[in-house]
Design a protein around this nucleic acid. Structure first.
Lengths: 344, 344
DNA sequence: TGTTAGCACTCAACTTAATGGAGTGCTAAT
DNA sequence: ATTAGCACTCCATTAAGTTGAGTGCTAACA
């Protein structure tokens, strides 16, 4: 059977209506609503075909039809209208909270949740390559050394370490020199035991301090592997009856709470992305790789802070989410984010 | 009417049973359950009295009784058994994740939520007095200066600032010297325009850099005002039918998401606390100052990291929460936290 | 005088049956 | 190819009945 123009139009009408109401939609509704001048009987025939083809389904005999995952998929792939959304306010909202990236991302999550009425999450960028650019150790007071590490992407980490006895100024200078010359430009895997041993030898009695320092460096580099995720509007899920069933809702909202969940699949763009399109992806129902999301749809987009530094944004809602609006908002948002990051 | 021993025992039995089942409890149940050897009829008489006194109430005629807020209050104040809970695992669980305070607190929130099956939040400590202890400026690369600020509680903050032209080594040394001698020991309000002007004069052409640096300092000190709050187990709320009504649940879980909510009332201990008791407080129903929590109970405790540095822990659940267990767990937890912080 | 057995009464919760209506599939007419 | 018409299905809603846990009251009892 072929999916001709008319069938497509009817399918589109069905999905549109369903997105609106969340109720199964019947032939009569379509007959009246859509601009095709067809009787309900004709629509019924077409619907039967569409059902056979797997684009729509009936919750039970004598009910209207609802889109299947396959139907949604077709809709998203071919029928989205590129409606330009007006997301102008965001820019100002974000910029007044200037400051750190964390804050910006938190704002973005909040903004999206508020605007779309779905649940959102934003992953902080994951830096692919991390090399030590600069290390500095300072004596803050007799009992504490401060270790500051700058990575080659200008991320700064610091940690206090406690020492038993004051370390002489002279030793600190030496320590700084050795660490910087030895470790500069290296990444985590390149700092191996041989190297560590070599440094320790040079420092003689202060070998113990070295251990602490290297420990900090190790933690720092590993730490970066683990990007922060900001979420907002998880309770929006409760607004959609088809998801607000107690056990489902708990599972979904729980997933938002336990941010670990997202790491695996929100982590990195699957493939080299075209930085113009922002790689907006839609996952419908079973297309989600996580069980707890199989009754939801999720739209993700990738943003870029600088060369090789990506983060992701995800929006989770019911399968009947307003894809038009979400994709539009996301698109417009990405553009503004680009601008913001370019300025920095 | 007087609240004699027997009435108290009956009330206690009622509350215990209700905490268990969540169902209104009838006279017959009590007559069988409790060790007082009384017939249901007698219990009924006493119940009528207890109701008149306001300790229990009937959802409707011909239903059993449930505790009123006043009843819970009496129970909590006088009838809690000091059951020692076995919270031994926590210590290890936390310590292997050693590291930063943030991580510890996150762990604590998670641990509590998992153990109690209620929703929990932990506020990071708020430092009352913040003075600059140490400032260090370093040239990381020709375009970037790194500003590191250590506060007197050993909190470290850092920020990169971009400069148009490389700053000479000599100037940086001078800058460090001036900043440290001038600002050491001062807090935010003490750094005023007069002082700023004075510093600028000394730095001559590098006045602009000073601005950036002071900006960072300002942001750092203000930032600390705003304590982080870690939450966990918000979805546990959905486990209790009396709270999992859609609108209620959304309100409560939403409150957990929007952490701002808690600042006002989770902020600081109300009064000078006895560091032994950890100031465990129970708020029942309307006793909560926040509307969205009026159907819940909340137990809070205060922990101390060092002299004058407090944080709070809160557990939110249904009014029929297992106060015994919560207070016990909290108590035991606080002890362990004390130990952990003492070590540091 | 405090306790208890007994009984009539109440009321939410559950069960069952009846009704209505939205929607379908099929057939025959256009 | 399209449509009007009709019989059929099945969910949702309502109404009526049934059940059972629980109460309050009274009268008997120790």
């Amino acid at each position: 059977m072929e999916l001709d123009e008319r069938k497509l139009k009817i399918l589109q009408a069905i999905i549109r209506t369903y997105l609106d109401t969340g109720e199964p939609v019947g032939s009569r509704t379509i007959s009246k609503y859509s601009d095709l001048k067809l009787s309900s009987a004709t629509i019924r025939n077409e619907m039967a075909d569409l059902e056979e083809m797997g684009y729509i389904l009936q919750p039970h005999t004598s009910a209207g039809r609802i889109p299947s995952d396959k139907g949604y998929r077709l809709y998203v792939d071919t029928m989205l209208e590129a409606k330009e959304s007006e997301v102008n306010s965001l820019r100002e909202e974000i910029e007044e909270k200037a400051g750190k990236l964390d804050d910006v991302l938190k704002q973005v999550a909040k903004f999206l949740a508020k605007n779309t009425n779905y649940a959102t999450m934003v992953s902080a960028p994951r830096y692919q390559t991390k090399h030590v650019k600069f290390i500095q150790i300072t004596s803050v007071d007799p009992e504490h050394l401060l270790v500051v590490i700058v990575l080659d992407n200008n991320i700064v980490k610091n940690k206090m370490i406690r020492v038993d006895a004051e370390v002489e100024e002279e030793m600190i200078v030496k320590l700084n020199f050795i660490l910087n010359t030895t470790l500069n430009g290296l990444d985590l895997v390149e700092i191996n035991l041989v190297l560590i041993q070599k440094i320790k030898e040079q420092m003689g009695a202060y070998g113990a301090v070295i251990d602490s320092v290297l420990d900090v460096i190790g933690k720092t580099l590993v730490d970066e592997e683990d990007p922060e995720i900001y979420t907002s509007g998880a309770t929006n899920i409760l607004k959609y009856p088809e998801l607000s069933d107690k056990s489902k809702a708990a599972e979904i909202i729980g997933a938002f709470e336990d941010k670990e969940t997202f790491h695996s699949w929100l982590g990195l763009p699957d493939r080299e992305m075209n930085s113009d399109t922002h790689d907006i992806q839609v996952y419908i129902g079973d297309e989600n790789h996580v069980d707890s999301m199989k009754d939801c749809s999720m739209v993700t987009a990738t943003y870029q802070i600088e060369e090789g530094v990506y983060g992701k944004i995800g929006i989770v809602g019911p399968k009947r989410m307003d894809y038009d609006k979400v994709v539009g908002t996301l698109n417009s948002l990405m553009g503004q984010l680009d601008d913001i990051f370019k300025e920095k």
